[in-house]
Write a protein that binds this DNA or RNA. Sequence first.
DNA 1: CCCGATTCCTGTAGGC
DNA 2: TGCCTACAGGAATCGG
Length: 271
Amino acid sequence: MPELPEVETTRRGIQPYVQGRALRQMIVRERRLRWPVPDDLEQILAGRKILALARRGKYLLLKFSHGTALWHLGMSGSLRLVDPRLPADKHDHIDWVFNRDLALRFHDPRRFGALLWTEEPVEEHPLLKHLGPEPLEEHFDGAYLFRKTRKSDQAIKSWLMNARNVVGVGNIYANEALFNSGLRPLKKASTLSAIQCDRLAEAVKQILANAIQRGGTTLRDFVGGDGKPGYFAQELSVYGRGGMPCHQCGKILTEERLGQRSTVYCARCQK
DNA sequence: CCCGATTCCTGTAGGC
DNA sequence: TGCCTACAGGAATCGG
């Protein structure tokens, strides 16, 4: 599912093809996403040029001369470049058609994704306004984690997955980063030492950077698919491995639910 | 304010 | 084979 690395992969994959291009037509086959696609968006965007692509957390930002489209992939969404003559399947909800050969097609079976429009400065948008720092930027570090966790009784995993604290870390990467830093997911945030915060910040950065470098997973075959096998099966230490032996010590990995999310850890390696 | 539970949705997997 | 249920999860929103 698309977390920060997959959204970044999407941005990089489509940018060379869509930046500077004008939208000839927008086709909406299903408006009922996480929020309805704005009624008049087809009119607003027809003939307009995409000036730049950016990302904030898991939001893809497509900048036009008079506003910005916010595209969220939810958990089953993907954006692909296709030949517009390719028949749309059941879950291909939106096309941005650029010319007779090229369209950007949004596919999202579970419809947790969203396409919204704002003419305000994008950082003022209610969905973006309260987002925490980007994990790959410098001021997300151990000192930040230490400072912000002092008064929180929350489990560190839940804390990490809250976009107000830091963006882009979903269930998969939270489980992995905690394993890599030797911390139990249920450990109360306020009980982390400064050194543990350093390790955790580093682990988050490392796992996300590594995933981006590998082109994420969900959208690997996105443009010009290089045929590389999925990165996850090889790289995941704990996610999806409950009941299997720890790669590090051999102990059977514990799986439990924390905040309705499956949580996996090694009771020996993580304290 | 804080934090856990609920909610949206559909494809997939497991039990019988 | 098919029916049923549980589960997957981003994140806003609700409720205690």
